[in-house]
Simulated scan of single mutants.
Amino acid sequence: MKIAYLTHSLLSCWNHGNAHFLRGVLRELVLHGHDVSVFEPDGNWSLENLRRDAGDAGLDAFRTAYPELSSRSYADAAEIEDALGEADLVIVHEWNDPAVVARIGRLRARGGRFRLLFHDTHHRAVSDPEAIRAFDLSGYDGVLAFGETLAAVYRRWGWGNRVWVWHEAADLRHFHPPISEGPRRGLVWIGNWGDGERSAEIESFLLRPAREAGLPLDIHGVRYPAEARARLAAHGARYLGWLPNARAPEAFARHLATVHVPRRYYTKLLPGIPTIRVFEALACGIPLLSAPWDDSENLFRPGTDYLAARDGGEMRRHMTAIREDAALRESLVAHGLETVRARHGCEHRMRELLAIADALAASPGAPGSGEAETRKMGPKNMGNAA
């Protein structure tokens, strides 16, 4: 199958979490014999910030870990229309310019032989629905949503059975326990500050309990303003700046545990959607502790695959137990690995995508022909998420 994916960036994971999953699932497609093309806009925001932060050397980790993958940059979507016209399946990520999203939809609606999917991996459908209304999806065959609560929003907007839940997952070829165990010390957190969406939670469930438990804490991430870095320092945490995602397994391998601190939108408005770090951490065999989060889709086994804390005091107790109880650490690692390897690898998601593509290929040729409301859907037809 010929598959084309339009992303914000494949090369850069700087504040671009979708790149983590994208790399893993596209590599699975390539290694299973599919013809994959990736397109990203010239001068995209993530890549420009990566180069400012780390120079071209910041791309080395990706290039070393993913030699099978490459992308083609474009200045105008017209440049890639011929290539898209040869594809069987085209997927357009929501972090693309609305004009590009609309243009590809028109290409499909004018008789493009490919099937066309919109891939949404963000909370904007509930936090900023006007931003999603900017997308004209009337030429699209369906939507891939990275959680059931987000898929439910699209169903309310008229997509019916043309929206599929497509969770993120761990790239098990790259994210795995270290070949040989070395010394482990303290905690590590890999995540961005979050534009105020979880600053209170970072303090309550990460910084303060780590300090109270007497555990060293290393923090990697970007977009930490001076006030945030001062807050880290006040709690004794060591801020280490940006870390290429391909090097995350190295960081996990040096520490006793890591922590999941979801953004507020994923606890209040879109419950049940974890950050991709949950999948990646469990795949790397590091014990995981979590701030409050409702695993409403039963992706994992709370208390078995990871430990959940209801408040900062319980998180401090969990951290202390992790430090002192080797058997607890071993149990969490074994069960977390078991769940991820059984259900949440990128090969699993590849097979889910191929099943969706087969279903689309068997349907009539017009975009959204299975749902009358889908045919009409565009910016004026999209209702409120609430």
Rank of each mutant, 00 (worst) to 15 (best):
S9L: 02
L11H: 11
S12M: 12
C13D: 13
C13G: 15
W14D: 07
H16F: 13
H16G: 07
H16Y: 15
A19V: 11
H20S: 12
H20F: 15
F21H: 12
L22G: 10
R23A: 13
R23G: 08
G24E: 04
V25D: 11
L26C: 14
V30D: 10
L31A: 09
H32S: 15
G33R: 08
G33F: 06
H34V: 02
D35F: 04
V36R: 05
V36W: 02
V38P: 02
F39N: 01
F39C: 01
F39W: 04
E40T: 04
E40M: 02
P41E: 05
D42N: 13
G43H: 11
G43D: 14
W45K: 05
S46W: 01
S46Y: 02
L47M: 12
L47Q: 12
L47I: 03
E48L: 10
E48A: 13
N49G: 14
N49W: 07
R51G: 02
R51M: 12
R52E: 13
R52Q: 14
D53T: 08
A54E: 09
G55D: 09
A57R: 14
G58E: 07
G58R: 05
L59A: 11
D60T: 15
A61H: 09
A61W: 10
F62K: 08
F62W: 13
F62C: 09
R63C: 08
T64V: 14
T64I: 12
Y66I: 03
Y66A: 07
P67Q: 06
E68M: 09
L69M: 13
S70H: 11
S71K: 08
S71C: 11
R72M: 06
S73M: 11
Y74F: 15
Y74N: 08
A75P: 06
A75F: 01
D76N: 08
A78N: 00
A78C: 00
A78H: 00
A78Y: 00
I80S: 01
I80H: 04
E81P: 00
E81M: 10
L84S: 07
G85A: 11
G85T: 07
E86H: 08
D88K: 02
D88E: 14
D88Y: 01
I91N: 04
E94H: 09
W95S: 01
N96R: 14
D97G: 00
A99G: 05
A99Q: 07
V100R: 03
V100N: 07
V100G: 00
V101R: 02
A102Y: 00
A102T: 08
R103T: 00
R103F: 00
I104D: 03
G105S: 05
G105N: 03
L107A: 11
R108F: 01
A109W: 01
A109H: 03
R110E: 13
G111V: 07
G112R: 01
R113Y: 02
R115N: 08
D120Y: 06
D120W: 01
